[in-house]
Design a protein around this nucleic acid. Structure first.
Length: 102
DNA sequence: CGCCTGACATGAA
DNA sequence: ATTCATGCCAGGC
């Protein structure tokens, strides 16, 4: 197991089953970063554009996408999620593939 | 070395 | 349900 938070975040993303979504805090928890929710976001923001990691499956704690609804990244993520079977409505994820759902 | 910003989370008003 | 304020970690200036 990598000791680098970065690598652990990568593994966490890779561990997300298709058709499911998770939150930054959950990924941080999975990566053993108790307060690294911001770290996860920071790491994802620095991901290489040629990354193959399913970063689009990572949402905020309230189930919303971390981007503004008029941003290209938001649309891209929404499309990717719909392709995975996750339905997005008005920037809101349709509760269906939430593993961490309380 | 100190201040600010950022793909967040949580609690309270 | 919405908005404000605080906490956390790392990087940039």
């Amino acid at each position: 197991m990598e000791n680098d938070p970065k690598a652990r975040v990568y593994s966490a993303l890779n561990a997300i089953p298709r058709g499911s979504v998770t939150s930054y805090g959950k990924v941080a928890e999975y990566a053993q970063l108790p307060h690294g929710a911001r770290l996860v976001g920071r790491i994802l923001s620095q991901l290489p554009k040629d990354t193959t990691l399913p970063w689009h499956r990572v949402l905020k704690a309230n189930g919303q996408i971390a981007f503004p609804p008029n941003s290209a990244a938001f649309i891209r993520q929404k499309q990717l999620l719909e392709l995975e079977g996750v339905i997005i409505c008005n920037g809101r994820v349709k509760l269906s593939g939430f593993l961490w759902q309380p």
